[in-house]
């Protein structure tokens, strides 16, 4: 199981080694240029529906530029090449969604899960993670759990404050 970092708020992104194509489903008016022109790349019946290896970069750019909305936009992966874009490249992000031009890789990269060892107390874990215990698996989203570290909890594996009663000391 892996996290899908090709998702971002409001859409998805697809890349080959030259360009990134952005897909914003809420903006789509189903004009259907994309799959009528290039089903090898844009196939609504497939998952993922965009295959960046299905055609040449030039052809993908040509078809993305046909999209009458901002549902499909594109940019060069080489930021230098995004600086002088001809206006006939209608769906380059600079003309449709300029904020995507300055998107940093780490904008959609999740923060690391925080593991904090409380002084003479439990392990407090915060963030997005998968939690497994006693045969259970839970997907935690912006979650927080507190795991017993003194060995005396009556609610294992969770902390119930017993460390104070037994005078647990972290030497």
């Amino acid at each position: 199981m892996e996290r899908d970092n090709n998702s971002f708020s409001g859409g998805r992104r697809y890349r080959n080694n030259e360009i990134t194509v952005y897909w914003l489903p809420d903006a789509c008016v189903h004009a259907s240029y994309c799959y009528r022109e290039l089903i090898e790349v844009f196939d609504p019946g497939r998952r993922p529906w965009v295959d960046m290896n299905g055609a040449t970069t030039d052809r993908i750019i040509e078809v993305v530029n046909m999209c009458p909305t901002e549902a499909l936009t594109w940019k060069w992966n080489d930021e230098e090449k995004n600086k002088n874009i001809s206006p006939d490249q209608t769906n380059h992000v600079i003309f449709r969604r300029p904020e995507l031009l300055i998107e940093k890789e780490n904008v959609i990269e999740k923060n690391p899960v925080s593991i904090k060892i409380m002084m003479d107390g439990p392990i407090v874990i915060k963030g997005d993670f998968t939690f497994q215990y006693s045969g259970n698996t839970k997907e935690m989203k912006d979650g927080i759990i507190s795991i017993c570290r003194c060995g005396a909890s009556n609610h294992m594996p969770f902390c119930d404050g017993m460390h104070r009663k037994i005078g647990f000391e972290d030497k």
Binding site: E2, R3, N6, N17, P112, T130, Y133, M140, P157
Partner: peptide
Amino acid sequence: MGTDGNNKSFTLVEV
């Protein structure tokens, strides 16, 4: 330059 951007940031906490 990455080809697909599949940076994994998946964390597993296992008791």
